[in-house]
Write a protein that binds this DNA or RNA. Structure first.
Lengths: 204, 204
DNA sequence: TTAATTATTAATCATTTGATTAAAATATTT
DNA sequence: AAATATTTTAATCAAATGATTAATAATTAA
């Protein structure tokens, strides 16, 4: 017998709410989320949401900001890395984006959806209008393919990495594919996409 | 003077409601749409929605079904066309998808979003689980690239066509790009994507 | 023209939902 | 231990929202 040595270090109420909010908001989006869903998910009284965070909106903003940092925090450092080659950047983006989304399947849809609903939320992450054009990545593409708008390649690269996750429900319905098979394909893409992008940059 | 010859043929109330519902549902999604938004958009009394269509849900299903037909009605005939080459199919898909979405900018996000919320709505369009695997398109790819899962190429093709529209709000914020410049880029992609896909199928 | 049917409106209902409050429980300080 | 501060709860509020109703207007049939 004997008393319990570690008296339940237990996660704080505030953090329980944020955890639940992350889960529900990213799965259902702001509009479809009820504050009661979050309270239930957290196993807490509804009033505690307003006690710790002032409103649904405020709680959402905290979650949204976190998620945006996750999503763009991977991309931006790579795009602006002066020490790596274009090829290396393409490999890094493929690998880290696919790994990130495999670990956070609802992330891309959530981000794209909420930025679409309110492009204003995006401001806190992205400062200047045209900072992307001066990125190392874009300049490296322009060097290799001066005749084509370099944005085309960034868009295609991101599309090949992210879009499969966005269309996953469609894909599953159309192919009968299971989750494990899907994940397997996404792992394959980590090495396929760089090969494809290199081919795209070389052609014509 | 003289009386009006055509005495306002005017669109029917029922159609006015559907028009408004199409617009509001596709822009905001099911959850964020208020029946009052639709009534206001149509310039009609709220009760008429329930008079002509039984409920918000029923009205939504009609719109959703239409939109799915639009979205998949383009893709499926091409994928199953036995009379065209793989190259032709890739060109058709690029061209017709990009044109379709340029004319209906909210379409892809709406479709992907609502299928994600309720994969059941998809059933009415897609019948068998694995019908895609037996499509001419997939077989043609398998012939040309037996060592890679042919789905990879379909996913990449669709990603390159559709994803730019899904990430448009992000793109605009990050580049300061205007609507006309965006459209211009999408027109360029109609010819770029087939070139890229061919290169992807050839490489390695 | 009158009667019957159909379409439209304003008012209202019942739920849902984000938020608040006052009391109770728990923890902290003195 | 008593006093004070903090956290949690149940009950409730007000506004929003999908839906209905009963009365009115417009159209069609007799």
């Amino acid at each position: 017998m004997g008393k319990i040595l570690k008296p339940v270090p237990d996660i704080s109420t505030e953090e329980k709410i944020k955890d639940a909010a992350r889960k529900v908001f990213t799965r259902k989006g702001y509009s479809a989320t009820r504050t009661r869903d979050i309270a239930e998910e957290a196993g807490l009284n509804l009033a505690l949401l307003n006690y710790y965070f002032r409103s649904k909106q405020k709680l959402f903003e905290i979650v949204m900001f976190e998620k945006m940092q996750k999503f763009f925090g991977i991309l931006l450092p790579i795009l602006f890395d002066i020490s790596t080659s274009l090829e290396t950047k393409v490999e890094s983006i493929s690998a880290s984006y696919i790994d990130l989304i495999l670990a956070n399947p609802d992330l891309p849809f959530f981000i794209l959806s909420e930025i679409r609903n309110d492009p204003g939320v995006f401001m806190k992450i992205i400062q200047k209008k045209d900072f992307l054009k001066n990125s190392v990545f874009i300049r490296q593409i322009k060097e290799k393919k001066p005749e084509i708008n370099p944005l085309h390649f960034l868009i295609s690269l991101l599309g090949m990495c992210v879009f499969p996750f966005v269309m996953k429900p469609v894909l599953k319905k159309m192919t009968g594919m299971e989750e494990t098979a899907f994940k397997q394909m996404m792992l394959e893409r980590k090495s396929l996409i760089p090969v494809w992008v290199k081919a795209m940059l070389k052609v014509k």
